[in-house]
Simulated assay, not measured.
Amino acid sequence: MNDYYSDEIYDKVSFTSQEFSKTDFDSCTFKNCDFSELHINGSEFLECEFIDCNLSNARVKGSSFKENRFENTKLVGIKFYEVDAFLFKVDFIKCNLDFSSFYQMTMENFRFFDCILEGVDFTETNLSGTHFDNCNLKDAIFDATNLENVDFSSAENFIIDLEKNQLKGATFSKSNVGNLLAKYKINII
């Protein structure tokens, strides 16, 4: 691939047989594209949209994602902690992020809308001010995680250890606050 693309629209393109190495995409739109298992090394995505795409198990080491939007996209098994953290900012809307990892990342004020986040690793991540709107967090890992001012009010299936995480100012609903007490194996009626 060439080194720089701007304002391009890619529709139903399979990138699985290619490698992005130091390739930059600026204000590009990817629709119904397949990036699964792709090596995306040292590339930059600036203000791009990924709609109905598959990035499952893509390797993103050293790549940067600045002001990107992922909608109805599969991002299963992504090691986000390998991306260039400088100006990392993305929105996730109706995405499947199962078994991805945000280990030790700073993700203040991020938004996850209607996402499936089963088994996602948020160990030692700074999620302060983040919103999990209508998200399924079954088996998500929160360990030494900064969850201050995080909105969990419409999230479900999470288990958070009050003693191992920072939760000052976090918001929960009456229907899901019991998930904070799961480790104590008590009955709430």
Rank of each mutant, 00 (worst) to 15 (best):
T130D: 09
D151R: 04
D11E: 09
E118S: 04
Y10R: 05
A182L: 05
K174P: 10
D24T: 12
N134H: 05
R59W: 02
S56K: 13
T106R: 13
K74R: 12
L181W: 14
V90D: 02
E37F: 10
I78S: 07
V83L: 15
T73K: 01
S36G: 12
E49V: 10
E118D: 09
C28S: 04
G178M: 13
I116T: 06
E148P: 04
K79N: 15
N54A: 09
I141L: 03
D24I: 15
V60M: 07
T29Y: 12
T125K: 11
N176A: 04
H131A: 13
T106I: 14
T29I: 14
F88G: 12
V60W: 02
C28Y: 06
F88R: 05
F152Q: 03
D34M: 07
M105G: 14
D11P: 03
N136R: 05
D98G: 03
N109V: 10
C115I: 00
L180Y: 11
V177F: 08
D161V: 09
D91T: 05
F113T: 05
K164E: 14
M1R: 02
K31Q: 14
Y103C: 14
F80W: 15
F99M: 05
F122P: 07
I40E: 11
D121E: 10
D91R: 06
S128G: 02
N54M: 09
M107K: 09
K79M: 15
S128M: 14
F25R: 02
T106K: 12
N146C: 08
D26N: 10
H39C: 03
N72H: 03
F70G: 03
V177K: 11
N134L: 08
S173A: 13
Y5V: 03
Y103A: 15
N41Q: 11
F35N: 10
N2M: 02
T145M: 02
T73A: 06
E118A: 03
E118V: 07
T145L: 01
N68S: 13
G129A: 12
V90L: 00
